[in-house]
Amino acid sequence: MPLCNKNLTPLQRRSMRLIGGVLLLTVLTNLSTPNLPNLFFDMFPGLAHFVSSHLDAHSGHYSVLLVGLLAALSVLPALLAVWVAARYLKAEPDEFIRSLVVRALLWGFAVTMVGDAIAGVLMASYSRPFPISLLNADLFFASTGIAFRLVLRSYR
């Protein structure tokens, strides 16, 4: 299988590890909203209860500082992902792989924007809020990963 783990260059392996860290951070930042799907909540059901009872945005117990901190924390995965991608693209010597990664990133952005647009229409139509913007990072990472596989497959 091309570009499976054993075929990755040290640079690609290091970048994958960093992206893994960013993904973990994305899941962690989702902790700020107990209603979002979260691996940690599935593993530790008590955690969801703890978070919702202590950090309930609707209860009015949030301090401005805490809200600001959580908002800033949710930005971190996006900024780190941009940093990892930029660092990788700058160092990747293989121009073909670089072009594939750029195309996959563009597909990731496209899918994220489409998701936002659809969620926006649904929210407006049904007057029901859905925190899609908090899931943007999750959607972006998943769609970029799938897009990379598909783009690579198209060259076989």
Partner: peptide, 19 residues
């Protein structure tokens, strides 16, 4: 060449123009 096998394949099949 210091590139991946996928790169060589893509160039050979004419689906990728090298720099």
């Amino acid at each position: 060449l210091g590139v991946s096998r996928q790169t060589v394949n893509a160039i050979e099949t004419g689906r990728f123009d090298p720099s």
